[in-house]
């Protein structure tokens, strides 16, 4: 029973308490760059989750075979291989998403969340725990990206997942880069304020 509770904790920590994007401030580049709409944020989040889960599992499976000194290059090759898989899959099945995410799909390789979890968790824990950890972290990241995308899309284009709820344009600057910095800044401040209140 206690093992089950531990796995649940392992899963849920990535979503709230250690949310990679909103609390740990990792993976900032895709967080800021692709969240111009809720759909893009969701797509990027799920692509990262896919890579995170599979690379966590494989790295955890090969951790005893890899010499300690060359582990980081080995991890990077594993991650790059899965990123290539995702890149080709998205180009094949979701060409419109590939168009809007552009160079940021191959850039999942250098997303610090993926290498961070490989080094901090998967290289020390079993395959199943690593799967759960990757899934929790990935979904937490997806949640953060979708939330940010929804806020920016609502302010900048006046729409929700592509459905317009105002006439005309929104405040366009929120879809552009400055809006990303400002909305994320206030979102992180809000979360810190709320969690400080709770404690």
């Amino acid at each position: 029973m206690s093992a089950k509770i531990n796995q649940w904790k392992n899963f849920s920590k990535g979503i709230l308490k250690e949310n990679p994007a909103l609390v740990l401030m990792l993976g900032m580049c895709p967080t800021l760059a692709v969240t111009s709409s809720a759909f893009n944020g969701l797509g990027m989040g799920l692509a990262t989750t896919f890579v995170l889960v599979l690379s966590n599992m494989l790295i955890s499976a090969i951790k005893t075979q890899v010499p300690d000194k060359v582990r980081i290059p080995c991890f990077i090759v594993v991650i790059a291989a899965f990123v290539t898989v995702v890149d080709l899959l998205i180009q094949g099945f979701l060409p419109s998403l590939a168009e809007s995410l552009g160079v940021f799909i191959p850039l999942i390789v250098v997303n610090c969340i993926v290498l961070g979890r490989a080094e901090a968790f998967a290289s020390k824990n079993g395959v199943f725990s690593s799967l759960i950890d990757g899934l929790g972290m990935g979904l937490g990241f997806t949640f953060a990206l979708t939330l940010l995308g929804m806020l920016r899309e609502a302010l900048g284009a006046g729409s929700f997942f592509g459905c317009k709820f105002i006439d005309g344009d929104g405040i366009i600057v929120f879809i552009l880069a400055p809006g990303a910095f400002i909305v994320l800044g206030f979102l992180v401040a809000l979360i810190r304020h709320l969690s400080a209140k709770k404690n």
Binding site: M25, L176, A180, F181, I182, G185, A189
Partner: peptide, 23 residues
């Protein structure tokens, strides 16, 4: 700086205003 804004939030907002200037 207000307590909740300390550290990364204020840095992000500052970067946002700088990005506006760069526009």
């Amino acid at each position: 700086v207000p307590k909740g804004m300390k550290g990364s939030p204020i840095t992000l907002v500052t970067a946002g205003i700088l990005a506006l200037a760069f526009m």
